[in-house]
Write a protein that binds this DNA or RNA. Structure first.
Lengths: 204, 204
DNA sequence: CAACAAACAGTCAAGCCTGTCTTTAAAGAG
DNA sequence: CTCTTTAAAGACAGGCTTGACTGTTTGTTG
């Protein structure tokens, strides 16, 4: 035989797969080794892609990380939307929404995003790419939360309480990266749900 | 002249000064360049200390960073205590306490601490040093907040509300490192102060 | 004042990361 | 079937960081 006639994959598809493998390896490594520990060499090894191929698709490390940021953004959106769809209804809904947010902000995707935020803080180029994306995600998350809770954003104070809720879970997520205290988190969210229900129910 | 008889400093003092210079330079660089960007070479340059002297006091980078963590912890405590002492009394006290916390969690010391947290997440050794210190600081901050607000921690729910408040400002601090939106932060704290006063006043 | 120890200074080699370069294989077009 | 273009592979050099090493100055102690 001269060449294997079986494997006949169009180059567009090949590229897509390669890029996906590289981006996913990047996100994995962000979680595992942190931003600084995510070297291009490790990424290509982890992805099972040769260094040449990697540099063909992503000429510089920034190109790779930027692509990974976009990829991550998409994953984050999908994950959250899925969780929102599976939300129960009834009296415990507020608590369930908080649980969903809490889970999301302690998941690996959050960890990877955290590494990017902190990395972007001292990297001009990365910041330019991360900031707008993050703003979009933030707005989308806000919208989703409002929708899940079924509250009226026009009512004064409501918008701020939702924002506070999101900042709270962000803070909880950050704390979790160092010491994972699930019970503590749970109690806080219990109480927060109570406050939220009370404050928001008066403004239907 | 043979030697300048004027400068006669005991070695203990010299060491102390040198170490302090190095630790402060380290903290500065953490803010400016991030954890990964804080190289030992940069630190010695910034501190105006020779490389030899640096390695004499801190044989490895970890030794240096660990010392910086402790130093930072002390600074954080002092800063917060000072802010607490200057707190006004009266009806707007709750808001003032939140402002104090908000300011603290957006200050350079917080930024440096953030870099250490994130760095420690993927560095076994660093984590072992940061985690216990952070727990101490956390408890101390909690205690201080309770004291400033003058609330009764025994009352069910109060403890969780205080914890939530601290996690909220932590989240706000994290968000600020990417996009500094002072007005947004201010409105959120306004609203939270209102809620807090209402929730806590019922439990004197 | 003399000997010792600590503090300080600066150089050096090893290892790692990034990105360039050359070469080979595969796909698409004529 | 051949030619061109794109994808993939792997070696290579330049730059940077870390920590070890040698030598010098300064303080302390007998």
């Amino acid at each position: 035989m001269t060449t294997t006639p079986a494997a006949r994959v169009p180059q567009e598809e090949r590229s897509r797969v390669m890029r996906a493998r590289l981006m996913e390896a990047t996100v994995d490594l962000l979680v595992e080794k942190g931003f600084a520990g995510t070297t291009t060499t490790l990424v290509s090894e982890r992805a099972g892609v040769s260094r040449g191929a990697q540099l063909h698709h992503f000429p510089t490390k920034n190109d790779l990380v930027l692509a990974a940021v976009e990829h991550l953004t998409a994953v984050r959106g999908a994950e959250l939307a899925a969780a929102a769809a599976a939300l129960p209804s009834g009296s415990r809904r507020t608590r369930a929404v908080l649980q969903m947010l809490g889970d999301h902000f302690t998941s690996p995707v959050f960890t990877a995003a955290l590494e990017l935020w902190v990395g972007a803080r001292t990297d001009e180029t990365l910041l330019a790419a991360v900031a707008p994306l993050e703003q979009r995600v933030g707005r989308e998350t806000h919208r989703l939360t409002v929708e899940c809770l079924g509250v009226d954003e026009q009512h004064p104070g409501t918008r701020e309480l939702i924002q506070a809720t999101l900042d709270l879970v962000r803070g909880l997520g950050l704390a979790t990266t160092i010491t994972d205290d699930t019970r503590r988190r749970s109690r806080i969210l219990d109480e927060w749900a109570r406050v939220l229900d009370r404050e928001l129910k008066e403004k239907p």
